[in-house]
Write a protein that binds this DNA or RNA. Structure first.
Lengths: 255, 255
DNA sequence: TTAGAATATTGATTTATATCAATGTCCTTT
DNA sequence: AAAGGACATTGATATAAATCAATATTCTAA
């Protein structure tokens, strides 16, 4: 009882604190589909898991995954980035905390590099170790398979954004995508834009200038409010949703 | 020995004829990663599999998959199609013979409808039945998991096409994508464009007119030769590859 | 074989966004 | 607190692809 540092009461390692923000999941704790993937990595069978810290802009070194791996993002943001021969950059997919990413070995069959878009820590497990575990753990298997198809559908949605949506519609979609994937509860209007304008542009197939203009135009029509450069507040959910689903407002040059 | 109908010598049902066109797979027959997925469906455990025939333009009825399913494409072409509120159409992903598609139940979480872009037959298995089988068959599991990550990488590549490539570059990429996925051997220059200009456009995020013009421009520079409307021959693989990887030839209005 | 419809091509014009350029704001570091 | 650099915004202009419109080709069915 003496001394200045109180004893740290670690939450039970087998049951790290996690509360799902949804009401429709139907499962709790370890069985919830929403449980951050890295918590599933905290178990004896995966003791070989490595944690890697990255600064903004760092790319994961090929020697970090000479074999296929599964990443879990603990904090920050991860992207798969590709460059065309003349330097054009695309962000092919994003991963936020609690999400995972399957990657083949860095030197083969890879469509891009894994980079951090913010200070980030990831936990990394060889795929064959993870697959072994999946075979033995039916709960984890159910979660992983369900999330795998969800991710694919997410990718489909993103293709729809890129293929046929106007810049404004893409931005509106992206705001909802961010809120969903970062688990912002519906009643919380304000949240953080976790990546730069340039990265948003490279993810949405636009130029940074266009992202600026589109955000401003959404603000003008009262759909959102920009707070500094990294915070945004959704003022009109319904309106923004309509735009995201294709209410075709294009940018206009005259006034 | 009498009678007019000779006994049919069915090829062994466990070992339907299939020869991989690649030389680097390292596995043969049932173990080859390239083995058409529907052949894996021909086994006792999957006797509940349904085969469905679709005409061009048909969409798979929701009652065909009230529960999550895995499709295998036998012949034809399948797409996941989405429409924005004002009618803009996107083809989010394509599936060719031998490929499979995971879909959640038609009425939930789905980003689009499953439609046939040509006369098509698919074989369909409930996901839980398929997953059961995966648990028991290590070979199929290896193949399925590997193909799942390949498909994801394919989706990534497609995002790169849509996000940052010019129409000409997209078309060049698409030609290679087609050839790979339809298993056209490298020494075969001519092959069939299995879907309409409009569908190509909706897959590549372009207009049908643009697809026409881009094809013509590729023909002019000698990269390909169009034979009728549904055949195309690749004359300059290296040049076309360079374009696909970002050698930025844009369409030009003058001349 | 021809008629008609569907699909594809070609042409003219418009326009949304890229591009180029300058300015402004924020954030870090000293 | 000020300086410097990175990031973001704003403005002016050019242009590639969309759009609109017409024609041509291919396919289907009578």
């Amino acid at each position: 009882m003496s001394g200045t540092t109180p004893p740290k009461i670690a939450s039970s390692p087998d049951q790290p604190s996690f509360e799902c923000v949804h009401e429709t999941c139907g499962f709790k704790g370890e069985e919830c589909i929403c449980r951050p993937m890295h918590l599933h990595f905290d178990r004896a069978e995966l003791r070989t898991a490595r944690t890697i810290e990255l600064n903004e802009g760092d790319q994961l070194a090929p020697e970090d995954f000479p074999e296929p791996v599964v990443f879990a993002v603990l904090t920050g943001v991860i992207a798969v980035e590709s460059h065309l021969s003349d330097g054009r950059r695309s962000l092919l997919t994003l991963r936020f905390p609690g999400e995972y990413l399957d990657m083949n070995r860095a030197d083969r069959h890879a469509s891009g590099e894994v980079v951090a878009l913010a200070p980030t820590s990831v936990k990394l497990v060889p795929r064959n170790v993870f697959e072994e575990l999946l075979l033995r753990d039916g709960n984890l298997r159910r979660i992983y398979w369900r999330r795998a198809t969800d991710i694919m559908h997410q990718q489909f949605d993103h293709s729809s954004d890129l293929g046929k949506k106007t810049p404004t519609e893409r931005m509106a979609s992206f705001i909802f995508e961010l809120r969903n994937r970062m688990n912002i509860p519906r009643f919380v209007e304000e949240f953080t834009l976790p990546i730069s304008r340039q990265s948003i542009a490279d993810y949405l197939g636009l130029r940074a200038e266009t992202v600026s203009r589109v955000l401003k135009s959404l603000e003008k029509e009262g759909a959102v409010k920009l707070i500094g450069k990294h915070k945004i507040e959704v003022l009109d959910f319904k309106g923004l949703r309509k735009i995201a689903n294709g209410a075709r407002p294009r940018l206009s040059n005259h006034r």
